[in-house]
Protein backbone atom coordinates (compact mmCIF):
# COMPACT_ATOMS: atom_id res chain seq x y z
CA UNK A 1 0.00 0.00 0.00
CA UNK A 2 1.36 3.40 -0.95
CA UNK A 3 0.87 6.63 0.97
CA UNK A 4 0.98 10.17 -0.28
CA UNK A 5 0.75 13.62 1.17
CA UNK A 6 -1.80 16.15 -0.04
CA UNK A 7 -1.56 19.76 1.19
CA UNK A 8 -4.90 20.86 2.63
CA UNK A 9 -5.29 23.76 0.23
CA UNK A 10 -4.98 21.32 -2.69
CA UNK A 11 -7.89 19.16 -1.50
CA UNK A 12 -10.55 21.22 -3.38
CA UNK A 13 -8.39 20.97 -6.52
CA UNK A 14 -8.25 17.21 -6.14
CA UNK A 15 -12.02 17.03 -5.79
CA UNK A 16 -12.55 19.20 -8.83
CA UNK A 17 -10.17 16.92 -10.67
CA UNK A 18 -12.16 13.86 -9.52
CA UNK A 19 -15.35 15.40 -10.91
CA UNK A 20 -13.95 14.70 -14.38
CA UNK A 21 -13.44 11.05 -13.51
CA UNK A 22 -17.02 10.14 -12.59
CA UNK A 23 -20.17 11.15 -10.74
CA UNK A 24 -19.23 12.65 -7.40
CA UNK A 25 -21.10 11.93 -4.18
CA UNK A 26 -20.26 13.27 -0.76
CA UNK A 27 -21.60 14.30 2.64
CA UNK A 28 -24.00 17.22 2.16
CA UNK A 29 -25.62 19.07 5.03
CA UNK A 30 -29.40 19.20 4.74
CA UNK A 31 -31.21 20.88 7.60
CA UNK A 32 -29.77 19.27 10.76
CA UNK A 33 -28.51 16.17 9.05
CA UNK A 34 -25.93 15.01 6.57
CA UNK A 35 -26.54 12.59 3.74
CA UNK A 36 -24.52 11.30 0.80
CA UNK A 37 -25.74 13.26 -2.20
CA UNK A 38 -24.53 13.86 -5.71
CA UNK A 39 -22.37 16.99 -5.93
CA UNK A 40 -20.50 18.95 -8.55
CA UNK A 41 -17.81 20.61 -6.50
CA UNK A 42 -15.99 20.79 -3.19
CA UNK A 43 -18.00 23.68 -1.72
CA UNK A 44 -21.25 21.65 -1.68
CA UNK A 45 -19.83 19.15 0.77
CA UNK A 46 -19.18 19.26 4.49
CA UNK A 47 -16.51 16.80 5.62
CA UNK A 48 -16.87 17.79 9.24
CA UNK A 49 -19.85 15.52 9.89
CA UNK A 50 -20.64 12.74 12.35
CA UNK A 51 -22.87 10.32 10.50
CA UNK A 52 -25.37 10.10 7.67
CA UNK A 53 -28.73 8.34 8.15
CA UNK A 54 -28.20 5.88 5.31
CA UNK A 55 -24.66 4.68 4.78
CA UNK A 56 -22.99 3.39 1.65
CA UNK A 57 -25.66 0.70 1.28
CA UNK A 58 -27.69 3.50 -0.29
CA UNK A 59 -25.52 2.97 -3.41
CA UNK A 60 -25.21 -0.82 -3.20
CA UNK A 61 -28.63 -2.03 -2.09
CA UNK A 62 -30.75 1.08 -2.65
CA UNK A 63 -34.02 1.36 -0.71
CA UNK A 64 -36.00 0.56 -3.84
CA UNK A 65 -34.73 -0.61 -7.17
CA UNK A 66 -35.83 -2.61 -10.17
CA UNK A 67 -34.06 -5.90 -10.83
CA UNK A 68 -36.06 -7.24 -13.75
CA UNK A 69 -38.66 -6.31 -16.28
CA UNK A 70 -41.00 -8.80 -17.83
CA UNK A 71 -43.82 -9.18 -20.30
CA UNK A 72 -45.93 -12.15 -21.31
CA UNK A 73 -43.04 -13.56 -23.38
CA UNK A 74 -39.80 -12.80 -21.56
CA UNK A 75 -37.88 -11.67 -18.48
CA UNK A 76 -34.93 -9.31 -18.67
CA UNK A 77 -32.42 -8.33 -15.94
CA UNK A 78 -32.01 -4.64 -15.29
CA UNK A 79 -28.57 -3.42 -14.27
CA UNK A 80 -27.50 0.15 -13.67
CA UNK A 81 -25.59 1.88 -16.44
CA UNK A 82 -21.91 1.12 -16.26
CA UNK A 83 -20.37 4.34 -14.95
CA UNK A 84 -18.03 5.54 -12.22
CA UNK A 85 -19.55 6.76 -8.99
CA UNK A 86 -16.97 8.26 -6.65
CA UNK A 87 -18.16 8.53 -3.04
CA UNK A 88 -16.14 10.90 -0.88
CA UNK A 89 -15.92 11.37 2.86
CA UNK A 90 -16.62 7.81 3.98
CA UNK A 91 -15.73 7.08 7.60
CA UNK A 92 -13.87 3.87 8.61
CA UNK A 93 -17.02 2.25 10.08
CA UNK A 94 -18.86 2.65 6.77
CA UNK A 95 -15.96 1.13 4.85
CA UNK A 96 -16.02 -1.85 7.25
CA UNK A 97 -19.75 -2.09 6.53
CA UNK A 98 -19.10 -2.31 2.78
CA UNK A 99 -16.57 -5.08 3.45
CA UNK A 100 -19.28 -7.01 5.28
CA UNK A 101 -21.80 -6.44 2.48
CA UNK A 102 -19.17 -7.52 -0.08
CA UNK A 103 -18.67 -10.82 1.72
CA UNK A 104 -22.37 -11.48 1.84
CA UNK A 105 -23.25 -10.50 -1.71
CA UNK A 106 -20.09 -11.50 -3.58
CA UNK A 107 -18.34 -14.34 -1.72
CA UNK A 108 -20.44 -17.44 -2.24
CA UNK A 109 -23.25 -16.79 -4.63
CA UNK A 110 -22.74 -13.52 -6.43
CA UNK A 111 -25.70 -11.21 -6.50
CA UNK A 112 -25.45 -9.68 -9.98
CA UNK A 113 -27.48 -6.59 -9.04
CA UNK A 114 -25.14 -5.84 -6.13
CA UNK A 115 -22.07 -6.67 -8.15
CA UNK A 116 -22.99 -4.30 -10.96
CA UNK A 117 -23.44 -1.47 -8.46
CA UNK A 118 -20.28 -2.36 -6.56
CA UNK A 119 -18.19 -2.35 -9.72
CA UNK A 120 -19.33 1.18 -10.43
CA UNK A 121 -18.27 2.42 -7.01
CA UNK A 122 -15.02 4.10 -5.96
CA UNK A 123 -14.72 4.59 -2.20
CA UNK A 124 -12.75 7.53 -0.91
CA UNK A 125 -12.51 7.37 2.87
CA UNK A 126 -12.05 10.26 5.24
CA UNK A 127 -10.85 10.33 8.83
CA UNK A 128 -13.26 11.36 11.57
CA UNK A 129 -13.45 12.14 15.24
CA UNK A 130 -15.93 10.28 17.45
CA UNK A 131 -18.99 11.68 19.23
CA UNK A 132 -20.71 10.11 22.25
CA UNK A 133 -22.66 7.64 20.06
CA UNK A 134 -19.63 6.22 18.26
CA UNK A 135 -18.70 2.76 19.51
CA UNK A 136 -16.38 1.69 16.71
CA UNK A 137 -13.47 1.46 19.13
CA UNK A 138 -15.33 -1.29 21.01
CA UNK A 139 -16.20 -3.10 17.79
CA UNK A 140 -12.65 -2.80 16.50
CA UNK A 141 -13.67 -0.90 13.39
CA UNK A 142 -12.28 2.54 14.25
CA UNK A 143 -9.33 1.97 11.94
CA UNK A 144 -9.56 0.57 8.43
CA UNK A 145 -6.73 -0.99 6.49
CA UNK A 146 -8.44 -2.09 3.32
CA UNK A 147 -11.74 -2.04 1.50
CA UNK A 148 -11.30 1.52 0.20
CA UNK A 149 -9.76 2.88 -2.99
CA UNK A 150 -8.32 5.94 -1.25
CA UNK A 151 -8.40 7.01 2.37
CA UNK A 152 -7.59 10.52 3.57
CA UNK A 153 -6.45 11.22 7.11
CA UNK A 154 -6.81 14.87 7.96
CA UNK A 155 -3.84 16.29 9.88
CA UNK A 156 -2.99 19.89 10.73
CA UNK A 157 -1.73 21.12 7.34
CA UNK A 158 -2.13 18.18 5.05
CA UNK A 159 -3.86 14.91 4.39
CA UNK A 160 -2.13 11.57 4.49
CA UNK A 161 -3.58 9.66 1.56
CA UNK A 162 -3.60 5.87 1.74
CA UNK A 163 -3.99 3.99 -1.49
CA UNK A 164 -6.09 0.85 -1.19
CA UNK A 165 -6.51 -0.27 -4.78
CA UNK A 166 -5.19 0.15 -8.30
CA UNK A 167 -8.24 2.30 -9.08
CA UNK A 168 -7.17 4.59 -6.24
CA UNK A 169 -3.57 4.64 -7.42
CA UNK A 170 -4.76 5.56 -10.91
CA UNK A 171 -6.65 8.58 -9.53
CA UNK A 172 -3.54 9.78 -7.73
CA UNK A 173 -1.25 9.10 -10.64
CA UNK A 174 -3.37 11.17 -12.96
CA UNK A 175 -3.33 14.15 -10.57
CA UNK A 176 0.28 13.62 -9.66
CA UNK A 177 1.30 17.25 -9.27
CA UNK A 178 -1.05 17.68 -6.28
CA UNK A 179 0.58 14.94 -4.23
CA UNK A 180 3.99 14.34 -2.76
CA UNK A 181 5.59 11.12 -1.57
CA UNK A 182 7.83 12.95 0.83
CA UNK A 183 6.51 11.69 4.16
CA UNK A 184 8.84 12.93 6.88
CA UNK A 185 9.53 11.68 10.38
CA UNK A 186 7.57 14.67 11.67
CA UNK A 187 4.58 13.64 9.56
CA UNK A 188 4.69 10.16 11.03
CA UNK A 189 4.97 11.55 14.55
CA UNK A 190 2.03 13.87 13.90
CA UNK A 191 -0.02 10.97 12.60
CA UNK A 192 0.75 8.83 15.65
CA UNK A 193 -0.16 11.69 17.99
CA UNK A 194 -3.38 12.26 16.04
CA UNK A 195 -4.32 8.56 16.29
CA UNK A 196 -3.60 8.56 20.02
CA UNK A 197 -5.62 11.67 20.75
CA UNK A 198 -8.48 10.32 18.61
CA UNK A 199 -8.49 7.03 20.46
CA UNK A 200 -8.73 8.92 23.76
CA UNK A 201 -11.79 10.85 22.57
CA UNK A 202 -14.19 7.90 22.69
CA UNK A 203 -16.81 8.43 25.39
CA UNK A 204 -18.87 5.30 24.96
CA UNK A 205 -17.64 1.76 25.14
CA UNK A 206 -19.42 -1.59 25.16
CA UNK A 207 -18.09 -5.03 26.16
CA UNK A 208 -18.33 -6.13 22.55
CA UNK A 209 -15.96 -9.08 22.57
CA UNK A 210 -18.13 -10.89 25.13
CA UNK A 211 -21.42 -10.15 23.38
CA UNK A 212 -21.84 -13.40 21.41
CA UNK A 213 -21.58 -15.55 24.55
CA UNK A 214 -23.70 -13.23 26.63
CA UNK A 215 -26.43 -13.16 24.00
CA UNK A 216 -26.35 -16.93 23.91
CA UNK A 217 -26.67 -17.16 27.71
CA UNK A 218 -29.47 -14.59 27.72
CA UNK A 219 -31.48 -16.26 25.00
CA UNK A 220 -34.46 -16.87 27.29
CA UNK A 221 -33.95 -13.78 29.42
CA UNK A 222 -36.83 -11.43 30.35
CA UNK A 223 -34.69 -8.58 29.09
CA UNK A 224 -36.00 -9.20 25.58
CA UNK A 225 -39.60 -8.76 26.77
CA UNK A 226 -38.75 -5.35 28.17
CA UNK A 227 -37.36 -4.28 24.81
CA UNK A 228 -40.29 -5.91 23.04
CA UNK A 229 -42.72 -3.85 25.12
CA UNK A 230 -40.94 -0.69 24.13
CA UNK A 231 -40.10 -1.38 20.47
CA UNK A 232 -42.29 0.52 17.99
CA UNK A 233 -41.65 -2.02 15.18
CA UNK A 234 -40.86 0.95 12.97
CA UNK A 235 -37.89 -0.74 11.28
CA UNK A 236 -35.62 2.28 11.68
CA UNK A 237 -32.78 0.39 13.45
CA UNK A 238 -32.25 -1.95 10.56
CA UNK A 239 -32.91 0.59 7.83
CA UNK A 240 -30.16 2.86 9.16
CA UNK A 241 -27.80 -0.02 10.01
CA UNK A 242 -25.06 0.04 7.37
CA UNK A 243 -24.82 -3.77 7.27
CA UNK A 244 -28.54 -4.65 7.25
CA UNK A 245 -29.51 -5.63 3.76
CA UNK A 246 -32.67 -7.79 3.83
CA UNK A 247 -35.05 -6.98 1.04
CA UNK A 248 -38.57 -7.79 0.01
CA UNK A 249 -39.43 -8.53 -3.62
CA UNK A 250 -42.53 -7.26 -5.32
CA UNK A 251 -43.83 -7.35 -8.88
CA UNK A 252 -45.42 -4.21 -10.23
CA UNK A 253 -47.66 -4.53 -13.25
CA UNK A 254 -48.19 -1.85 -15.85
CA UNK A 255 -51.83 -0.80 -16.08
CA UNK A 256 -52.11 -0.64 -19.84
CA UNK A 257 -50.38 -3.85 -20.92
CA UNK A 258 -49.31 -7.36 -19.90
CA UNK A 259 -45.92 -6.33 -18.61
CA UNK A 260 -44.26 -5.14 -15.45
CA UNK A 261 -41.18 -4.87 -13.29
CA UNK A 262 -39.78 -6.77 -10.34
CA UNK A 263 -38.69 -4.48 -7.54
CA UNK A 264 -36.51 -4.97 -4.48
CA UNK A 265 -37.30 -2.94 -1.41
CA UNK A 266 -35.22 -2.75 1.77
CA UNK A 267 -36.96 -4.75 4.45
CA UNK A 268 -36.59 -5.02 8.21
CA UNK A 269 -36.79 -8.06 10.47
CA UNK A 270 -38.46 -5.92 13.13
CA UNK A 271 -41.56 -5.47 10.96
CA UNK A 272 -44.55 -7.77 11.44
CA UNK A 273 -44.86 -10.12 8.50
CA UNK A 274 -41.09 -10.39 7.97
CA UNK A 275 -41.16 -14.04 9.05
CA UNK A 276 -44.52 -14.85 7.52
CA UNK A 277 -44.32 -17.83 5.19
CA UNK A 278 -46.59 -19.36 2.58
CA UNK A 279 -49.51 -21.08 4.25
CA UNK A 280 -49.86 -18.26 6.76
CA UNK A 281 -47.48 -19.28 9.54
CA UNK A 282 -45.54 -16.43 11.13
CA UNK A 283 -42.39 -17.54 12.94
CA UNK A 284 -42.06 -14.30 14.86
CA UNK A 285 -45.49 -12.77 15.41
CA UNK A 286 -44.47 -10.59 18.36
CA UNK A 287 -42.06 -7.74 18.88
CA UNK A 288 -39.98 -9.51 21.52
CA UNK A 289 -39.18 -12.33 19.12
CA UNK A 290 -38.32 -9.90 16.35
CA UNK A 291 -36.03 -7.64 18.39
CA UNK A 292 -34.28 -10.75 19.72
CA UNK A 293 -33.80 -12.00 16.18
CA UNK A 294 -32.33 -8.67 15.12
CA UNK A 295 -29.71 -8.55 17.85
CA UNK A 296 -28.84 -12.25 17.98
CA UNK A 297 -28.39 -12.31 14.23
CA UNK A 298 -26.32 -9.16 14.12
CA UNK A 299 -24.09 -9.77 17.11
CA UNK A 300 -23.91 -13.54 17.34
CA UNK A 301 -25.22 -15.64 14.47
CA UNK A 302 -23.38 -13.61 11.89
CA UNK A 303 -20.05 -14.70 13.37
CA UNK A 304 -20.75 -18.38 12.76
CA UNK A 305 -21.43 -17.77 9.12
CA UNK A 306 -19.11 -14.90 8.21
CA UNK A 307 -16.41 -14.91 10.88
CA UNK A 308 -17.32 -11.58 12.42
CA UNK A 309 -20.33 -9.79 13.89
CA UNK A 310 -22.31 -7.42 11.68
CA UNK A 311 -21.94 -4.35 13.87
CA UNK A 312 -19.38 -1.73 12.86
CA UNK A 313 -20.02 0.63 15.77
CA UNK A 314 -21.26 3.51 13.62
CA UNK A 315 -23.76 4.55 16.29
CA UNK A 316 -26.69 4.91 13.92
CA UNK A 317 -29.03 2.73 16.01
CA UNK A 318 -27.90 4.75 19.05
CA UNK A 319 -28.67 8.00 17.25
CA UNK A 320 -31.88 7.13 15.41
CA UNK A 321 -34.02 4.67 17.40
CA UNK A 322 -36.92 6.77 18.71
CA UNK A 323 -37.25 4.66 21.87
CA UNK A 324 -33.60 4.11 22.74
CA UNK A 325 -33.22 0.45 21.80
CA UNK A 326 -29.73 0.04 20.41
CA UNK A 327 -26.55 -1.95 20.68
CA UNK A 328 -25.51 0.05 23.79
CA UNK A 329 -28.78 -0.27 25.73
CA UNK A 330 -29.06 -3.94 24.70
CA UNK A 331 -25.57 -4.71 26.00
CA UNK A 332 -26.20 -2.77 29.21
CA UNK A 333 -29.33 -4.82 29.81
CA UNK A 334 -27.72 -8.16 28.95
CA UNK A 335 -24.63 -7.61 31.08
CA UNK A 336 -26.76 -6.14 33.81
CA UNK A 337 -24.82 -5.68 37.07
CA UNK A 338 -21.42 -6.56 35.67
CA UNK A 339 -21.69 -4.10 32.75
CA UNK A 340 -19.27 -1.49 34.10
CA UNK A 341 -16.61 -4.06 34.98
CA UNK A 342 -16.87 -5.63 31.56
CA UNK A 343 -16.61 -2.32 29.73
CA UNK A 344 -13.27 -1.68 31.41
CA UNK A 345 -12.05 -5.17 30.63
CA UNK A 346 -13.00 -4.85 26.95
CA UNK A 347 -10.88 -1.74 26.58
CA UNK A 348 -7.71 -3.28 27.92
Amino acid sequence: MKTYKLPKDKFPNFINFLSNKGNLYGPVKQKDQHSFEQVNEYSEMDFNYQRTILGIKKFLTPPRYITQKFDSESVEDIFPQSETNIVLGIHPCDIHAVKILDKLFLDNIKDPYYESRRNNLILVGHSCLPDKNCICQSTGTDIVEDGFDLFLTELENHYLVWVGSSKGLYLIASAENLFSEDITKEDIAEYIRWQKSRSEMFETSIPFKYMPDIIHLNYDSDVWDEFGDKCLSCGVCSLVCPTCNCFNVEDKIVMSADKGVRERMLDSCTLPGYSLVAGGHDFRPNRTQRIKLYYTHKLKEYIGKWGQPACVGCGRCVSYCPVDINVVTISQALFSDVYEEMVCDNNE
Binding site: C234, L239, I253, V254, G260, L266, L271, G273, Y320
Partner: peptide, 27 residues
Amino acid sequence: TKLISGLIPQKYPYPVCVECKFKDNDC
Protein backbone atom coordinates in the same frame (compact mmCIF):
# COMPACT_ATOMS: atom_id res chain seq x y z
CA THR B 1 -53.24 -3.13 -11.46
CA LYS B 2 -52.75 -6.46 -9.69
CA LEU B 3 -56.48 -6.66 -9.09
CA ILE B 4 -57.41 -5.97 -12.72
CA SER B 5 -54.75 -8.50 -13.75
CA GLY B 6 -56.35 -11.24 -11.68
CA LEU B 7 -53.41 -11.34 -9.25
CA ILE B 8 -53.51 -11.14 -5.48
CA PRO B 9 -51.96 -7.94 -4.13
CA GLN B 10 -49.26 -8.59 -1.55
CA LYS B 11 -50.12 -7.17 1.82
CA TYR B 12 -46.93 -6.27 3.62
CA PRO B 13 -47.48 -3.88 6.50
CA TYR B 14 -44.89 -1.27 7.33
CA PRO B 15 -45.08 2.22 8.82
CA VAL B 16 -44.33 5.66 7.39
CA CYS B 17 -40.92 5.57 9.17
CA VAL B 18 -39.70 3.04 6.59
CA GLU B 19 -40.42 5.34 3.65
CA CYS B 20 -39.12 8.29 5.67
CA LYS B 21 -35.75 6.62 6.24
CA PHE B 22 -35.60 5.64 2.55
CA LYS B 23 -35.45 9.39 1.96
CA ASP B 24 -32.67 10.01 4.48
CA ASN B 25 -35.04 12.14 6.58
CA ASP B 26 -34.31 13.18 10.12
CA CYS B 27 -36.74 12.00 12.84
